[in-house]
């Protein structure tokens, strides 16, 4: 089985430690993961902010880069959800009858590279989406469903609370997979997060377009996190963690944030 790591642009740039943790963890579980170097971004930011033309271009790039792998694992619920939820929509919308996209018409259109998927309006794009999308999985899905493990041999003697990010929960429907993984980490005390399923208020560009509401939502999330008495807030998406963590840090709560991969990669002697 050829497994590709889709690191995501946010993790690549800001949270390389999460990527290293995924590699360490998967290798420990006997899974050799490849890193296709041509990967960049799934297009989430452009698609969600209203720049479908750029988003579509990045989607095509993603499909090119990851074609041929048996599984693509991503340590980010929202990026995996972008591929799984939005790419099929792009494929549907690419039909010739769809309305022209106006807002970003000025963007340059790159001619397709040789051998690349020719045209986002073509059947090839839709076929590539249909082929690849079911293979893209969030880390917890990959561990539980593909590798069939819940005990990953981790050791992390700390009090932890888990925030199920919206796109993991309602987009990918990962259910209790992350909880099942955390429950089997030796030494870890998992404490439930009140109102866990409520959005933290990040929402990508929402955080800067609607800062007042975003901050109010995060203040409530931060209050719920500190109420648990946890030392560590865990989630499977560093975007949300940046938002909540940035607030927890500003408020000097002392609670630190860690990606699920980093906790699952931890063993005795580490940290």
């Amino acid at each position: 089985m050829r497994v590709a790591l889709f690191i995501t642009c946010v993790n690549d740039t800001l949270f390389p430690g999460t990527g290293r943790a995924v590699v360490t963890l998967l290798r420990r579980l006997g899974c050799d993961v490849e890193f296709p170097r041509a990967q960049t971004c799934c297009g989430q930011m452009h698609l969600n902010t209203g720049y479908p033309r750029e988003g579509r271009r990045l989607a095509r790039h993603f499909l090119d880069v990851f074609a041929g792998y048996d599984a693509v694992v991503a340590p980010s619920g929202s990026c995996a959800a972008t591929v799984r939820e939005q790419y099929p929509r792009l494929a549907r919308a690419a039909a010739p009858s769809s309305a022209p996209v106006r807002a970003s018409a000025a963007a340059p259109v790159r001619p397709p590279a040789p051998g690349a998927i020719a045209d986002d309006g073509s059947a090839a794009f839709a076929d590539a989406v249909a082929e690849l999308v079911p293979k893209v999985r969030d880390l917890s899905e990959f561990l539980v469903d593909v590798l069939g493990v819940t005990d990953v041999g981790a050791y992390f003697p700390h009090r932890v609370t888990y925030h199920p990010t919206c796109h993991s929960l309602r987009g990918l429907r990962v259910g209790d997979r992350p909880i099942r993984l955390l429950e089997r980490v030796r030494g870890l005390e998992l404490v439930p997060l009140p109102a866990a399923e409520e959005c933290c208020g990040f929402g990508g560009t929402f955080a800067v377009k609607n800062p007042a509401i975003s901050a109010a939502m995060c203040a409530d999330k931060a209050r719920n996190v500190t109420a648990t008495g946890a030392e560590v807030l865990c989630a499977a998406d560093n975007s949300c963690l940046t938002h909540i963590g940035g607030t927890l840090s500003r408020q000097r709560t002392g609670v630190r944030t860690m990606h699920l991969a980093e906790i699952l990669a931890a063993t005795e002697g580490a940290r």
Partner: peptide
């Protein structure tokens, strides 16, 4: 416009090396 972020949140530290360079 990005001041809307730092109004209520700290920024994460930028790492010296990206994941792909580490790889």
């Amino acid at each position: 416009p990005l001041s809307a972020w730092t109004e209520t949140r700290d920024l994460p530290d930028i790492p010296p090396e990206s994941f792909r360079d580490w790889w």
